Simulated assay, not measured.
Amino acid sequence: MDAVLREYVPADRAWLVAAHGRLYARDEGFDDTFAPLVNDILAAFEAGHDPARETGWVAEVEGRSVGSIFCVDAGDGRAKLRLFLVDPVARGQRLGARLLEACMGFAQARGYRGMVLWTHAEHRAACALYQRAGWRCLRSEPVRSFGVDLTEQTWEIDFR
């Protein structure tokens, strides 16, 4: 299964919102407040991102969208990784690693001094991927979000 990574376009928003909502409800038990948050994040990105310093990718297999990742400016010389998703049909193919490498490479090429991300410890495969790529967990705390109890985490990586 060869995935093609292409730049996000606004027409991808409906798929991204639906995929995040469906997969997080199924796999994590998230309630219906999560998909609208994804929609808000994408609407803000579309309305005001700096294409020279921020971008998003959609992974496709045979024309079907199966993954995403975004790099946005977090301020203070850092980029922020957002909306990282790999559909279960495409897992186990190194697609997550390819998306992460593309995002980190973009951030480095644009002169960011590092990156940050926010996730949940329950996303074990993603957290293991971040750790293998050199990220470190800065903060971990129990929270109640999207109708479930989670362990919220903040991760970072320095490029310099």
Rank of each mutant, 00 (worst) to 15 (best):
F45Q: 13
Q108Y: 08
L85S: 00
A128I: 03
E60W: 06
Y130E: 04
R6Y: 06
E152H: 05
A35Y: 08
R110N: 07
G92W: 02
L23G: 07
G67H: 03
V17F: 08
G147Q: 06
A47Q: 15
L150S: 01
A125C: 06
A97I: 00
L85P: 00
L42I: 12
R82K: 09
E156V: 01
W155S: 01
G75R: 06
A25I: 06
R132K: 12
Q108L: 08
D31R: 13
L150E: 01
G92D: 02
T33N: 12
R136W: 15
E7Q: 13
D40P: 07
L37K: 12
V58T: 08
G134R: 09
E141Q: 10
R139T: 07
D50V: 13
E141N: 06
L129W: 06
R144A: 10
V148D: 06
E62Q: 13
V86W: 00
A44E: 15
L117C: 14
F146P: 02
G111C: 05
W118F: 12
L37N: 09
A35W: 08
F30Q: 08
R78N: 04
D2S: 13
G21F: 07
E46C: 13
D32W: 05
E101W: 08
D2M: 11
E7D: 14
R26W: 10
D12N: 05
R6K: 10
Y8Q: 07
S145Q: 15
L16K: 06
E152L: 04
E7M: 12
T55P: 09
Q131N: 11
I157E: 01
V58P: 01
G56W: 12
E54F: 15
F70H: 03
G105C: 08
E141A: 08
K80R: 10
G29K: 10
Q131L: 14
D32L: 07
T154S: 04
T154G: 02
G114H: 11
A43W: 12
A102H: 04
M115N: 05
G63E: 02
R113F: 09
G105V: 10
A47S: 15
N39P: 14
R91T: 02
A44N: 15
T119I: 09
V38Y: 11
T119S: 15
Q131M: 12
A121V: 04
R82A: 02
H123M: 14
E7F: 14
L85H: 01
L117D: 09
K80P: 02
S140H: 12
A11Y: 07
I69H: 01
R113E: 12
V17H: 06
A79I: 03
G29Q: 11
M1V: 12
M1A: 14
T55C: 15
S65T: 08
F146T: 04
A19M: 10
V86A: 00
E141F: 02
E122D: 11
W57N: 07
R124K: 05
K80E: 12
V61F: 05
R22W: 11
A79V: 03
D50S: 13
D27P: 06
L23C: 09
P36R: 13
L138E: 07
G147F: 09
L83Y: 03
R124W: 03
G67W: 01
A59N: 05
P51W: 14
F159K: 04
R82Y: 00
F34D: 05
